[in-house]
Structures are given as structure tokens and as C-alpha cells.
Amino acid sequence: MESDQVQSDHFQSSRTRPGRVASAGFGAVGCDSPDHGAVGAAAVGPEPAAEERVLRPGPVFAALDVGTNNCRLLIARPARGGFRVVDAFSRIVRLGEGLSRTDRLSDEAMGRTLSALKVCRSKIRRRGVTALRAVGTEACRRAGNGAEFLERVESETGIHVEIISAGEEARLALAGCAPLLDPALPRAAVFDIGGGSTELMWLELRRGRPYLIDQVSVPLGVVGLTERFGGDRVSPDSYRGMVAEVREALRPFAQRNALAREVARGRVQMLGTSGTVTTLAGIRMGLPRYDRSQVDGTWLSRADATAIAGDLRALDFQGRASQPCIGRDRADLVIAGCAILDGIWETLPVPRLRIADRGVREGILAELAAAARRP
């Protein structure tokens, strides 16, 4: 019987260098957002025949993001100017559950994550992946046993997961969503609300290309805040407390970059990539089921976001779980996400933001595709 373990030397290693942000096009990235537990299986375009999945020649790229809340995989083939997604997987694993109290990954969280990674391993084998980059983010960075857990992952699955810095995480997320930036505006703020941390980047656009001016990572994410403030009925005082923590954590960053002044001049656009903003956008659009193709690239006004967040705070866990763009897996986390978004908006009071249902994985795939095109 063929071994079900991924052989590590089957993959080309991928290491990238910081610098100007890559903004490779995505080709036809046609998958529903895998970040929403209520979605079910992601749609990834036409399914090739079984023999094509295994035998079709040419490079196949994979990007794997082991996050604080989600384990997410994208598999793609090169396409003109970018790549085309052929398979996707996501599972809410809550790897960072309890981390804010113990600074260690729990046995239960590691077990859930390892189970999800074994599914990823099977998909990687079936699709004949030739180049893989797998990264671990805040939970793996912060946990005292994070490196030990990833050694176990490699031993049991053959997948080497690289713990990346907050700066590299932000850079990859930006590389993934940069095509959505408006080249007509000279400044941009791009944020990513994660399970264990929130990243904010301040950019200058030169001839339509984004260059990083400054960035900050604050250890405030939806999982940690939910554990501290609750995820069922959140009182107005608790909600305001979360917003204030985010605002104060971002204050030094805002002051040294004169963000308020730039916003007042009308020179700033804002782009958000996270389950929080895609959820709010899906609710605002009245979607009966989350649909990435409708949400990615759309706009959300601050007024609409504030109204939706208020409606969600009036519901209990069950009420939020019944929302088709939320579901049970995220019903306790969405209020903390709204509070983080409010804190960002108080720091950068632009009237609206653009929604990106893309991020670290797409950034990895864009860079793998670009590397494959180079001689």
C-alpha cells in the first residue's frame, strides 16, 4: 500500500525576501471563502477528471496557513499573470484556544489542528503539489510549545510548517490583496484581523505600486478578546473596553505616521482582510449563503458596519449562529471582531473600506507563481 505521508523532499522550498510588495494577478481565483464555518465545502471551479488530478504535468503550488483560529489551504496551477485555484480547504481549529491564559497550546487544540493538517496532506498528495509553503502565525509564535507542536506535525504528516514573524505575515497578506488597492489614492491602510493578533500596514502608492512605510502588529485578536470579554451576551461596557484597548494599542502608530492628518486630506484608502469584514459585508448584502465571488472587492461603509455590529450585539450566541454568513463556529468571535474593527476605524476615520477575501495564502501563491515564471 502506498504510504499516506507527504515526503518533505517532494516539494520545492520557498523563501521570500521583504521589499516592494508583489502584486501578481490571481487569474481565476474562484473559491467561496473558506473562513466561514457555515459555508461548507468551497467551490473552486471546474473539477478535473481523476486521472488529470494525478497525471497532468506542470507545476502545482500549495499555500498552507496554520493560524490561531483557522487551518487553511489553497492549491493552484499557474495561469496567465498569476494562478488558478484548483482546490481549497479550511477548518476552524482554534489552535490558540486558552493561549491567553496559559501561553501554551492545549492538547485538544493541537489534536484538532493535526486532524485538519492530515486532510491537507491528502489534498496535497492527490493534486501532485510540486511547490509548497506552509506557515504558522501568532499562536505558533507565542506558544511556549509552538515549535514542539510543529515538529510533531512534520513527523506525522511530512509537512514542514515555518513559523513566520508578524512582519512577514503582514507582507504576505498585503501581497495577496494588493491588486484591490486604488492607484489613484497615494496612501493606503491595510489591516488583517486575526485570531491572535491584528496587523496594520501603512503604504504609499507610487505609480500604482504599494510600498510599505510602516507597520504594526498588536496582540489583540478575536480569540483572545472573546476569551477575556465573553462571546455570548457582551455588555456595552465590555464592548467599549475592547474598542478602547485596540485604539490605545494603535495610538503610537497613528501618531508617528500622522494618520488623522492624511485622512483629513482625503488621501487615504482602507482595505480590510479578515473573517470579520467579510462577514459584515455578507450580512450587509443580505446573502442567503456566504459567497466569496460577491464579497471580495466590495465596499463597506462605516455607517453600515456600525449598524450591523449593533444588531449583532443585541443577539445572543444562538441568534448570531443562525445568521447564514456567521454560523456556530464563529458566532462567539464576531463581536470581538467588530470591536477590533471599531478600534481601527477610530484610528483611521475613513468613510468606507474595501473588503478583501484573500490574504496570506494568496500572497504565497502569487510569489510561488512569480518565482516559477523567472528563468
Rank of each mutant, 00 (worst) to 15 (best):
L205F: 08
I283H: 11
T306Y: 09
L73V: 03
S238K: 09
V44E: 03
C338S: 15
R84Q: 14
E156S: 03
E151K: 09
F11K: 00
T157E: 09
G208C: 08
F149K: 02
S322M: 09
R320E: 14
V86Q: 14
F89I: 08
M270Y: 06
V66H: 01
V29M: 13
E227N: 03
R206M: 09
T279I: 12
R142D: 04
I164Y: 02
A356R: 03
T157K: 12
G272D: 14
R267C: 08
I124T: 02
T306G: 11
N70G: 04
R209A: 13
F83M: 01
A314F: 08
P219L: 00
R289S: 13
Q7S: 10
E245I: 03
A258L: 14
D65M: 06
I92S: 10
Y239I: 04
P179S: 02
L105Q: 02
V6Y: 09
G81W: 01
E154S: 10
D65H: 00
A370I: 03
V153P: 06
D182P: 00
L74C: 04
Q318L: 13
R233P: 06
V129M: 01
A88M: 02
I364D: 01
A369G: 00
E262W: 15
G144Q: 08
G297M: 11
A260M: 13
V243Q: 07
R72K: 13
E154F: 02
V234S: 07
L185K: 11
A109D: 12
L312D: 10
R126S: 13
C177T: 12
S155M: 07
H160Q: 11
G158R: 03
A43Q: 15
W202L: 15
R228C: 02
R240A: 15
N257P: 12
G19R: 10
D332L: 09
C177W: 00
A356N: 10
R53F: 05
W299S: 10
A166G: 15
H10I: 06
E97T: 04
G25L: 06
A178D: 05
A366T: 06
L212F: 07
R142A: 01
R358G: 02
A173N: 15
R302L: 08
D316T: 05
G98I: 03
N70C: 11
E47M: 10
R233F: 08
